[in-house]
């Protein structure tokens, strides 16, 4: 497939429409400014500049996680671990309680003179339950923190943005940021080295 053909296709599954540049101008809510970069080093330096300028509602978009970008953006540590930990703890507790309740309380069965309940023979199953719920906690914790699934995104209206999953890097500053200004923000992104800046409307 040719690259031109691909960039012409619009990314959203929710609205699989081909929108021309003219149609974009007709919508009227300003979403923000989107600046394109070619290399990881350029993007990393630009991100540090946007961070130092004190913006809050902005983000960097890359085809793969770039090493050092969290520090360049000034992001705090991810909180996914708490979801994993509490889900895993729940799994272990529920596993042990289930085995005790089923085999020692609700319907006790004597097998080979073994105790009705023991944490030793219960361990393998409770251990698997820990991992099972911990894995669900990690995936769904990540999706919850990222507010995904979100099938519609104003950025999908930008034709050039479709290359973010291919080979380009973007910095987006949202218009709702208190420091956002059409002129100053654009100047900052230009100074940061972007060769292409456009406005995204929703």
């Amino acid at each position: 497939m040719s690259r031109r053909k691909r960039t012409r296709t619009i990314r959203s599954a929710a609205q699989s429409l081909t929108i021309t540049e003219n149609a974009m101008a007709e919508t009227n809510i300003k979403y923000g400014l989107i600046a394109e970069f070619d290399t990881t080093a350029d993007t990393l330096h630009a991100a540090a500049m946007v961070r130092d300028a004190g913006y809050r509602r902005w983000d960097v978009f890359t085809p793969f996680p770039v090493h050092g970008m969290d520090e360049a953006m000034g992001l705090p540590r991810s909180k996914v671990g708490w979801f994993t930990f509490f889900a895993g703890l729940t799994g272990f507790t529920l596993g042990m309680l289930m085995i005790w309740w089923m085999n020692a309380y609700d319907y006790p069965i004597v097998v080979g003179g073994k105790p009705l309940f023991s944490p030793i023979f219960s361990f393998p199953v409770a251990y698997e339950c820990t991992i099972l719920l911990g894995a669900f906690g990690s995936l769904f914790g990540m999706l919850f923190l990222n507010r995904l699934p979100k099938l519609y995104n104003p950025l999908f209206r930008s034709v050039r943005f479709a290359r973010v999953t291919h080979d380009k890097f973007f910095i987006v500053v949202e218009a709702t940021d208190p420091r956002f200004s059409d002129i100053d923000t654009r100047k900052l992104l230009e100074r940061a080295g972007s060769k292409h800046i456009e406005e995204v409307r929703d």
Partner: peptide, 22 residues
């Protein structure tokens, strides 16, 4: 179909941060 299962992934670094931890 790809769009549905991609869940609206954009490559946001705020997302990558949680994604890599998960």
């Amino acid at each position: 179909l790809y769009g549905l299962f991609a869940l609206g992934w954009t490559g946001s670094n705020r997302h990558w941060s949680n994604y890599e931890k998960a």
